[in-house]
């Protein structure tokens, strides 16, 4: 389990570096460290399916972010520290941590989930669906509605991006 904590410490360091970095490109690379670390964490937790998806999505995201940041001027201007803002931020962080601790205490212990529905999936998935990969059996058969919802979310996101970024049909400012 120690390697899990090493990778997670690396991810936290990457996240902090991404926030503190002045250079946008360095910040994007630091975010990439977090995503790739998450992929390794999924592997260590024996979830290769999610690890694979996380890996490829992270690569796409970093490519898009790098290409997007390279076209922008680096506006990494330090605005100076504001005491009241920092105090409020610290208070909010402390509140979040406290609520988090309270919430996590009510969860079942790590690695000991309530396997009420999952037990049925594990026992019957192969017989019910005929698919050897149980994850595929769950997301495309038992919980296909869920997947349809995800596909709709992605569809909406793509349509939104294409609408905002499109060139056809956008009036120039001079034309108004």
């Amino acid at each position: 389990m120690i390697e899990l904590y090493i990778v997670m410490a690396l991810m936290i360091a990457g996240a902090l570096a991404a926030v503190e970095m002045r250079n946008l490109l360095s910040a994007v690379i630091a975010v990439g460290v977090v995503g790739l670390g998450l992929s390794i964490v999924f592997l260590l937790l024996k979830a290769p399916e999610i690890a694979l998806t996380q890996l490829v999505v992270e690569i796409v995201a970093v490519i898009i972010l790098i290409r997007a940041t390279l076209t922008l001027e680096d506006s990494g201007e330090w605005l100076g520290s504001r005491p009241l803002g920092s105090l409020l931020g610290a208070l909010f962080a402390a509140l979040t941590v406290w609520v988090g601790i309270v919430a996590f205490k009510s969860l079942p212990a790590f690695g000991d989930p309530l396997m009420l529905v999952s037990q049925r999936y594990l026992a019957d998935a192969a017989a019910d669906t005929g698919a050897a990969n149980i994850v595929a059996a769950i997301i495309l058969d038992y919980r296909a509605y869920d997947t349809l919802g995800e596909a709709t979310v992605l569809f909406t996101a793509v349509v939104g991006v294409l609408t905002v970024m499109r060139r056809k049909g956008v009036k120039d400012h001079g034309e108004k």
């Binding site: 690890a51 490829v56 050897a132 990969n133 994850v135 595929a136 997301i139």
Partner: peptide, 10 residues
């Protein structure tokens, strides 16, 4: 996708 890790999304 229905035999090994992976699938349509990945």
């Amino acid at each position: 996708g229905h035999l090994s890790p992976g699938g349509g999304f990945a």
